[in-house]
Design a protein around this nucleic acid. Structure first.
Lengths: 338, 338
DNA sequence: ATCGTCTGTCGAACCGATTCGTTGAATCGA
DNA sequence: TCGATTCAACGAATCGGTTCGACAGACGAT
């Protein structure tokens, strides 16, 4: 079932079949039809490896996702889905690589085995060895999130600083004077996880501007950690009446702790966050949040990457997204003691 | 940076480099070291396409997931993650194809372009065109879920009939006499979606055996549909005090409807389901459920597939999993009017 | 009648690996 | 000292496509 077989059965040379298929040279209508018939009959499709070898491109994109897959947040999942969809629209396949460091075998295979034409990397750190690796290998890439050298690379990111600021403004407008930030884990922050750092900056700035008091807490990405964190907040800072957060995975636990403490949301306690829209709507009560446009980001990333593959030496492009806050049912005016 | 370059720089032939790398023939220790040095220096790795072309295998698996538009359930997500992990452990890459029918371009590329050595297909229907297509193409595959001809193919599946039966037994043991089944959508059922049909069978059988009354409801896979469905149940069958379900995505809505009706879970109403463990634990109240071992299923599927690729003509193997129910906080004895 | 152009097709080279058959040198036993 | 054996390396063929240069035949212009 190779091109030679098709050529033999339709009585032409292999090159003619190739040209009939690609249209890069003229082939008479009669031969073209004859070839097409044979192809349809045998259900022939060119071997991807052979084509990739000759053309020097694989028509495949790599998507590097965080390792230990089970822990993908809803937002990340939405993003992955949208990358797949966008790639499928332009007939590109997607190779997934669950890897964190730059010594990961799967990552190495993809990058230096030239299995893909370009790579999208999620969950970027401020100093990210994968970025360095990709640059060294000369592999086109787009990151979700940006490094400490943002001007050097192509990326799409969410403006966490602005979004957390908006959360704080919103809460302050509602009369909350003591607000906590539930950030992501201390380990992530220490590792230079950008969104965490920028959420911190935005929080600090907004708190200062509105002259409210703000305390930051780091919290691992799961419900039990959220529960423990919220307990700690209530315990150490009983004056706090609202939280802003970028840690959606912790929220079920946060909610549980508030419930146990008898603090109704939003009656006695408000929560504003940054989360995937779908997730925010399924949360109970529905979450007031900046709805991260994960779907849009995915197709944006694919577009940028395709552009980059075509023009590897053009100036890197970036997109910083700052979606507005959707008001739902998890925030309300600060409780005034009767 | 190809094998010829390495050969030239280390003063040997290309074949010697190849043998030094694969170890398929003896290469003197001295030359091997010399070659390795050059390789390390240039950071060389064999071109995947060239290797695939010559060897006739790609060292890549295909994973066919439901079309990207539809949302993956938490269970499906866990499964995808575990496939990725299991494949990475044995140095295989994974190509994702979000496709439903057999005419999907991405599916066709993977199957007849021989981009992968084998395929794992999720969300199998009783009559599934993709299975037919794969059989015709002679591509090794493993399905998650099985078709109406289960003996013909390799598959891994959850024994939904048994699990739903166990839910019903558990609820009946707690004194519930009127139980609803919240199945998945009527469209899916009509399309021959296996888990839906087997849940129905298990439910019918268990209800009969325990002499309780059971009513089945179909419900789309999202919270709003779950809410509407639960409202309908309460409205049309006020005697019902418990539901069993395989529709995890509908549960947040179900819960919301019960809350609005003032029915405390599990005090006044019980819920037992089939769901991913992590999901069941994050649900409030924690869900009594048969914890689908999605992680185990993923690596099982990869193992079966690798076996199948090695021996395409061996008798197909199957695995039907029936995990026990984990008792959590969403079920309690039927409410007895005071 | 001759030359140039255009069409449609073919043959051969090439992409970068693997692998088989071969060969030259070193080693060994008789 | 010679043939047999082993070791280490080489050269060429091959996988299945794409693409470049060549070329035969038809056609039109001069």
């Amino acid at each position: 079932m190779n091109i030679g077989e098709i050529a033999r059965r339709s009585g032409v040379s292999r090159s003619t079949v190739s040209y009939a298929l690609s249209g890069k040279r003229t082939v008479s209508e009669a031969t073209r039809r004859r070839i097409q018939e044979v192809i349809d009959e045998l259900d022939y499709r060119p071997n991807a490896a052979a084509r990739a070898l000759k053309e020097g491109r694989t028509r495949t994109l790599g998507l590097v996702i965080p390792p230990a897959g089970g822990r993908l947040t809803y937002m990340q999942l939405e993003f992955v889905a949208s990358v797949l969809e966008a790639a499928a629209r332009v007939d590109l396949d997607v190779l997934l690589s669950p890897s964190g460091g730059d010594h990961d075998r799967s990552f190495e295979r993809i990058v230096s085995g030239r299995r893909v034409d370009g790579v999208i990397v999620m969950e970027i750190r401020l100093e990210d060895p994968r970025v360095t690796r990709l640059q060294k290998a000369g592999m086109p890439f787009v990151t979700i999130g940006h490094t400490a050298q943002p001007h050097e690379t192509c990326w799409v990111d969410v403006d966490y600083a602005t979004l957390i600021s908006r959360c704080v403004y919103h809460l302050a407008d509602l009369g909350h004077h003591h607000i906590a930030l539930i950030n992501r884990s201390a380990e992530l922050l220490a590792a230079g996880y950008g969104p965490g750092h920028r959420a911190r900056e935005g929080f600090t700035a907004a708190v200062e501007q509105r002259a409210v008091t703000g305390v930051e807490f780091c919290c691992a990405d799961d419900a039990p950690a959220g529960e423990a964190c919220m307990e700690q907040i209530l315990d150490a800072h009983p004056e706090i009446t609202a939280v802003a957060t970028i840690n959606e995975a912790a929220l079920p636990g946060v909610q549980r702790a508030l419930e146990r403490a008898g603090l109704d949301v939003p009656g006695r306690f408000s929560i504003a966050g940054v989360a995937a829209k779908h997730w925010a709507e399924e949360f109970r009560p529905q979450l007031t949040a900046a709805d991260v446009p994960a779907l849009e980001m995915g197709s944006l990333a694919v577009d940028l990457l395709i552009e980059r593959i075509a023009e590897p030496n053009a100036a890197p492009k970036h997109r910083l997204l700052a979606p507005p806050i959707s008001l739902r049912s998890s925030t309300a005016p600060a409780f005034a003691a009767p």
